[in-house]
């Protein structure tokens, strides 16, 4: 989880990194030791999966905004049912 948090934090702090991520996510993701499920989720901008895995909500939310996921889309992801029909306590 440390490297996922590091990625989320650095994407927020470094606009050039966020721009590179938007153009070529794999090139950026290669620089972080991510669990395969984490890597797939962030590449797909699937914040719900990362939230369910216990990532810090501040880091998730700030990163989402920085890589072009709107506030509304972010919260819609978190409030939607997952693939097994579960919803979070929204």
């Amino acid at each position: 989880m440390y490297f996922l948090h590091k990625l989320l934090w650095e994407l927020r702090r470094d606009p050039a990194l966020a721009a590179r991520f938007r153009d070529d996510p794999d090139a950026v993701l290669d620089g972080y030791e991510l669990d395969p499920a984490e890597r797939a989720a962030i590449a797909a901008r699937d914040f719900r999966t990362l939230y369910d895995r216990g990532a810090n909500p501040y880091l998730l939310y700030f990163c989402a905004l920085q890589i072009g996921v709107s506030r509304a889309d972010y919260y819609e992801q978190l409030r939607a049912a997952d693939s097994e029909g579960r919803t979070l306590n929204g």
Partner: peptide, 8 residues
């Protein structure tokens, strides 16, 4: 308050 959580 809630930040980055469904209850925001």
């Amino acid at each position: 308050h809630w930040v980055g959580m469904p209850q925001a």
